[in-house]
Simulated scan of single mutants.
Amino acid sequence: MEPDQQRPPSVLQKSVVVFSKNYLPVSRVNIRRAVTLLVAGQAEPLGFIEGAIWQVRSPSFVLQVPEHIRLTVSNPERLWKVPPVNRREVLRRDGHACQYCGSTRKLTLDHVIPKSKGGPHTWDNVVTACEPCNLKKGNQLLHEVGLVLKSKPKAPTHPAVAFAEQFWKEHPSVS
């Protein structure tokens, strides 16, 4: 094969959207995991949603793997707990940017309502702030200093909910 010719992408590099038993999009898995779920009888193809269908061949049979599958086992949702408030998670939630000015340098954590004034150490009271904004705010409330939050702080959402929201944004015609 000449270097300038490209091979068609391997079927094994494709991914499949997995729906729960209630038809809610749960995750995206690689085609190998999808084949395992289909062969084990833990999932079924969703034929009413338009999408690609790939053939996976073995010496003994050919399996049609659609772009969307539905779990058939009653798998109770794994218990998910909101992660604890910590620097890494708050920085991730806030996109590694100061929630007052947008800076991405010298980041710290700030309590919107200072702890000394009764502010709790919770997801809706802790934000990412750069050192200059944190020093400017000090031990005061936002309106006392004239600072405004770029976005309202909130706890992270369940990963399945976040995936479902993203899926419906990307596939409005499916719904």
Results as ranks from 00 to 15, higher is better:
residue 1 M to H: 07
residue 2 E to F: 14
residue 2 E to M: 11
residue 2 E to S: 10
residue 4 D to H: 14
residue 4 D to M: 14
residue 5 Q to F: 09
residue 7 R to G: 11
residue 10 S to D: 15
residue 13 Q to F: 15
residue 15 S to R: 14
residue 17 V to W: 03
residue 18 V to W: 02
residue 18 V to R: 03
residue 21 K to F: 14
residue 22 N to H: 15
residue 22 N to I: 10
residue 22 N to S: 12
residue 23 Y to W: 05
residue 24 L to D: 08
residue 29 V to P: 01
residue 32 R to K: 13
residue 32 R to D: 09
residue 35 V to K: 00
residue 36 T to V: 07
residue 38 L to E: 01
residue 39 V to I: 12
residue 41 G to P: 09
residue 43 A to W: 00
residue 46 L to G: 01
residue 52 A to K: 15
residue 53 I to M: 13
residue 55 Q to Y: 11
residue 56 V to C: 02
residue 56 V to L: 02
residue 59 P to M: 07
residue 67 E to G: 09
residue 70 R to S: 02
residue 71 L to A: 13
residue 73 V to A: 15
residue 76 P to M: 13
residue 79 L to F: 14
residue 79 L to A: 15
residue 80 W to R: 05
residue 80 W to K: 10
residue 81 K to C: 02
residue 83 P to W: 04
residue 84 P to N: 00
residue 85 V to A: 02
residue 85 V to E: 06
residue 86 N to C: 07
residue 92 R to W: 01
residue 94 D to T: 04
residue 94 D to N: 06
residue 95 G to W: 14
residue 95 G to D: 14
residue 95 G to P: 03
residue 97 A to R: 11
residue 100 Y to P: 04
residue 101 C to G: 04
residue 107 L to A: 07
residue 114 P to Y: 10
residue 117 K to H: 07
residue 118 G to C: 09
residue 119 G to S: 00
residue 120 P to M: 12
residue 126 V to H: 00
residue 127 V to H: 03
residue 127 V to R: 02
residue 129 A to W: 04
residue 131 E to N: 08
residue 136 K to Q: 04
residue 137 K to M: 05
residue 138 G to D: 00
residue 139 N to E: 08
residue 140 Q to W: 13
residue 148 V to H: 05
residue 149 L to E: 05
residue 149 L to F: 08
residue 149 L to H: 06
residue 150 K to G: 06
residue 152 K to S: 03
residue 153 P to S: 01
residue 157 T to A: 12
residue 158 H to T: 12
residue 166 Q to F: 13
residue 166 Q to Y: 13
residue 166 Q to W: 15
residue 170 E to L: 13
residue 173 S to C: 14
residue 175 S to M: 06
